[in-house]
Design a protein around this nucleic acid. Sequence first.
DNA 1: TCCAATGTTCGAGTATCGTCGAACCAACGG
DNA 2: CCGTTGGTTCGACGATACTCGAACATTGGA
Lengths: 110, 110
Amino acid sequence: MSNMGYAGHMELHEPELREVPVTAVLAALADDVRLQIVRALAEGGEYACGTFEFGVSKATRSHHLKVLREAGLTRTRVAGTSRYVRLRREELERLYPGLLGAVLAAPARA
Amino acid sequence: MSNMGYAGHMELHEPELREVPVTAVLAALADDVRLQIVRALAEGGEYACGTFEFGVSKATRSHHLKVLREAGLTRTRVAGTSRYVRLRREELERLYPGLLGAVLAAPARA
DNA sequence: TCCAATGTTCGAGTATCGTCGAACCAACGG
DNA sequence: CCGTTGGTTCGACGATACTCGAACATTGGA
């Protein structure tokens, strides 16, 4: 036990969306892998991190999920060894109405 | 004669918006300086490049305007020694309805 | 208790981005 | 014809981003 520095049992950093610069939100969406994750999240409700297999390593996937989370776009629930991620649709829609829809409306493989 | 053919020396690269990956559009908007430019363009109609003074050199400004143009977000008209830039609102609205509004609705200095 | 499964973090490599000054070019006005 | 004006392009630099393998932490089960 007595190990600090590892965030396994610490609070996840999930900022309020309004405190995230809009450029950070846009930058979070401006990546192919993350956009695929967002598309998948927009389909249903909650997904385990491991669900996302988009041709990147799990280290990279973890990185992208962190970027999305710290941009205020997703919320993560810890359950056992798994982490369940979901899109913060309502907040997103309230602060940037139309943004998510516009992004998702774009052709998937432009 | 046509001012397009040989008015300058080079055609400006202004792609069709639908041929630009959505990630490129988002990336173009995910920069503070460019967002300021877009905000200014959204106010009125046409601005000379030199109008934009956002604390960057003219080389940097030229770079950012190029990024916006090649992302399909702006159109540029050459007139004499000046270049007039305007936002491609209609096309943008048609392809990504709500996107521009959502971005512009964001607080200017988040 | 030991091991497998799920994620995170670290370190490093590569690539891309934002920025600038300097050089350049094309167009206009004496 | 020459200089000025408005912009672009060319290196170069530092910073950031994406990617991976390896090592680690936490949980849960055999």
